[in-house]
Amino acid sequence: MTANEDQEMELEALRSIYEGDECFKEISSVSFQFRIGALEDKNAFILDLTWPEMYPETAPQISLDAFFNNRISAETKQLILSKLEEQVEANLGTAMMYTLFEWAKENQESLMENHKPVVTAVTSSSDATSATSTAKKREKKEHLTKSQKRKIISKTDNKGELPRGWNWIDVIKVASEQNGRKRR
């Protein structure tokens, strides 16, 4: 069997196994994503796997660069990748995607046991000054006269909201005016 025939068979198997599974995503016929853990799980991560031309005779490319994984430290990512590469070496020459996904699911706890979420908070002095300037802007309110306030209140409903179409142009009036101009 050629590498392409092996890939086609494995692709068909993956589609049937993971049909309807929200954790599995087929990016292309040679590129896949699999989420290990639930979305709410702080130890969840996404595996990106891509088949090179000679897969399964050559190892798939494994990546943890998905945006979902930004909170995982570089050390934890390296640990996960090294453990997965051990599994790849053990299964080289055979269809291994299902094996890798299931191994990662079963070993999620041990892979993520030293995981400390990365928190990225970027603040700069310009952010701080813009926050104080917006606070000053909020202090200044436009003062309305009593008649302006009455006019606004008369237009609003009991919830304080303006009715739908309150600022629409009277279409019939405008259309009739335009028709009158055309006739002249």
Score class of each variant (00 low, 15 high):
Ala175Leu: 07
Thr76Val: 10
Asp65Lys: 04
Ile153Glu: 15
Asn43Trp: 05
Ala104Ile: 06
Ser147Tyr: 10
Asp170Val: 05
Asn158Tyr: 14
Ser73Asp: 13
Ala3Phe: 10
Lys137Ala: 15
Phe32Cys: 01
Glu5Thr: 03
Glu57Lys: 07
Tyr98Phe: 11
Met9Asn: 11
Phe68Asp: 06
Asn179Asp: 12
Pro52Cys: 03
Arg71Met: 05
Trp103Ile: 00
Lys155Asp: 15
Thr2Leu: 05
Leu84Tyr: 02
Ile169Trp: 10
Gly93His: 01
Ala13Gly: 05
Met9Pro: 01
Ser154Pro: 04
Glu8Met: 09
Thr123Met: 11
Gly180Thr: 10
Arg181Gln: 13
Asn69Phe: 02
Val122Ala: 08
Glu40Phe: 13
Glu113Tyr: 12
Thr120Glu: 14
Lys155Gly: 15
Leu144Tyr: 11
Asp48Trp: 08
Ser154Asn: 15
Val119Trp: 05
Ile169Ala: 10
Glu75Phe: 11
Ala128Arg: 14
Asp48Pro: 00
Ser110Thr: 12
Ile62Met: 07
Gln7Leu: 04
Pro117Leu: 04
Ala44Cys: 11
Leu64Trp: 03
Gly20Lys: 04
Ala175Arg: 05
Glu109Leu: 11
Arg184Asp: 15
Pro56Ala: 00
Thr76Phe: 01
Asn91Pro: 01
Cys23Thr: 11
Ser130Asn: 14
Phe32Ala: 00
Ile62Ser: 03
Leu92Val: 04
Pro117Val: 00
Glu19Phe: 10
Glu53Trp: 06
Leu14Ile: 01
Arg183Thr: 15
His115Asn: 06
Glu53Leu: 07
Asp157Lys: 03
Ala175Cys: 09
Ser126Lys: 15
Glu139Thr: 13
Val174Leu: 14
Glu53Asp: 08
Trp166Ile: 12
Ser133Glu: 14
Ile27Cys: 01
Val118Asn: 02
Lys141Leu: 13
Gln78Gly: 11
Ala13Pro: 01
Leu79Asn: 07
Met54Lys: 09
Gln7Met: 02
Glu22Ile: 00
Leu79Pro: 00
Lys151Phe: 13
Ala90Phe: 14
Ser176Phe: 14
Thr76Met: 04
Lys155Pro: 10
Lys105Cys: 12
Trp168His: 12
Pro117Gln: 02
Ala128Met: 13
Gly165Met: 02
Val30Glu: 02
Ile80Phe: 08
Asn69Ala: 03
Glu75Leu: 08
Thr132Ala: 12
Lys182Trp: 15
Ser29Ile: 12
Ser133Cys: 09
Ile152Cys: 09
Val88Leu: 03
Ser147Gly: 05
Lys182Leu: 15
Arg183Tyr: 15
Ala59Asn: 02
Ser110Trp: 09
Ile152Asn: 09
Ser31Trp: 07
Lys116Leu: 08
Ile72Met: 10
Glu89Phe: 03
Ser63Tyr: 07
Gln33Asp: 11
Ile36Gln: 00
Ala44Phe: 02
Ile80Trp: 09
Ile172Tyr: 13
Ala131Ser: 12
Lys137Ile: 12
Ala3Asn: 04
Thr94Cys: 10
Met9Gln: 10
Ala104Leu: 05
Ile153Arg: 11
Asn158His: 14
Ser133Met: 14
